[in-house]
Amino acid sequence: MKAVLGLEDGTTLKGKGIGAEGATQGELVFATPFIGYEEALTDPSYKGQILMFTYPLIGNYGISHEVMQSDNIKAEGLVVRSACSNPSHKKSDESLEEFLLEHDVSGIEGIDTRMLTIKIREHGTMKSALLVGDKNEKRAVELAKNQPDITERDLIPKVSCEKGYRIKGEGPRIVVIDTGVKRNILKSLEERGADLLVLPHDSTTSEIKKHDPDALFVGNGPGDPSRAVGPIRAVKNFFGEIPIFGICLGHQIISRALGGNTYKLKFGHRGANQPVRDIESGKIYITSQNHGFATDPDSLDGTDLKITQTNANDNTVEAIKHESQGVFAVQYHPEAFPGPRDSIRMFFDQVVEKAGGNFA
């Protein structure tokens, strides 16, 4: 099946279509892990983005529904060098293309992903459009250009739960503000006994308070953190009353709520081997990351937020703390599945302990 990928700068690449026929738009981003494509495709943080893998062969172990991080594919489209049509794994439920078709998502294979990755590294992420079942290059470029920038899109409402729900536990009660939280974050808290109340992103202070939480948690999610009005308000209102924790977008939301600022990275961090340096101990954690925005370190001056970890590659902020008020947030994904898991105990044990639980 014919397909074409168009970029806002006029670049077009023709390839073979996989998945559903149709047209899709999004910010083209690249991710570097060799494995974990099921988790990435279903990660709500990729809403609004067309996901390209740098590893040349994707789909070789099929799709296992048990590792999905949400109930469906959240990426707007998929770009790969080669999509395996004959996967082999005992836990495979279906092939990559069957998965795309099941969720009405378009993809393209057989194009030069190395060239595209270099282009994005040099010029930054780009607006793009993918046509499957159509090879109209002019239309693809027009669709790429004529879409709002990801900083102008309200994506959190598209991935947040509509109604709150509970995951019962015997430990501290933690309210999770759902900005697109991954299943493995909830699982990591549940395994440590936390009593979880997952609430919509726009929950009011009174709606949160009626659950009498021991702590507030803000997870990952898509888009510009400056547009997360409800979660920012919640962090401001509960700061100083209960401990507050965050991962990825949640880290950025907490930074903004407590006086800091954020900015858009040139091409983001999306991969499974990002080194994070703990400033106090000097220890290096190898982490999984997926973010296009970061906390501005200079903006934290005078906020009482302390930078505790930085990225060993580019020195961007990776963790913040407010010791006296029980705030702790990380930019990376300690819950990452399939890994690495260097930081899972370091982070989640602290969260449950500070919330008042016993995770041992």
Rank of each mutant, 00 (worst) to 15 (best):
E170G: 13
N358T: 14
E27D: 13
V327D: 06
D342P: 10
G22E: 03
I111M: 02
V317M: 07
K209H: 01
I232F: 10
N311K: 08
L216C: 05
H269K: 15
D212A: 04
G219T: 06
P213V: 02
K145L: 03
A312D: 15
K90G: 12
R139F: 04
L28N: 08
P56D: 12
K283I: 11
V141E: 13
N315M: 09
E76Q: 14
E241I: 12
F238W: 05
I284W: 09
F53G: 09
E335R: 02
T204I: 07
Q289R: 14
I247Q: 02
K16V: 15
L155W: 11
T151C: 11
I320Y: 07
G107Q: 09
K74S: 02
N273W: 00
S299P: 09
R341T: 01
G180I: 10
F293H: 10
P338F: 14
A272M: 12
K145G: 01
D154M: 13
S255E: 12
D304M: 11
L249T: 00
E207W: 01
A129P: 05
P297W: 03
Y61T: 14
L131V: 01
S45A: 14
T205Q: 13
F337P: 00
E21C: 05
P213K: 04
L116P: 01
P297A: 07
N72Y: 09
G107R: 05
K187L: 04
Q252T: 01
K74A: 03
T11V: 14
F347I: 08
I18Q: 11
S255N: 08
S95E: 08
S85E: 15
V351L: 03
D202Q: 05
V132Y: 01
G133E: 02
S343T: 06
D93W: 01
S343F: 11
F217S: 00
A75Y: 05
Q69G: 06
T205G: 08
P231C: 05
A3S: 12
R166D: 00
G268T: 14
S92E: 09
E353Q: 11
I307N: 12
T11R: 11
S128R: 00
S206D: 13
F99L: 13
F337N: 06
V159M: 01
R256N: 07
T54M: 07
N184Y: 12
N273P: 05
K135S: 15
G15E: 09
T113D: 10
D71Y: 13
V235Q: 00
K236W: 08
S64W: 07
V105F: 07
D214A: 08
C84D: 13
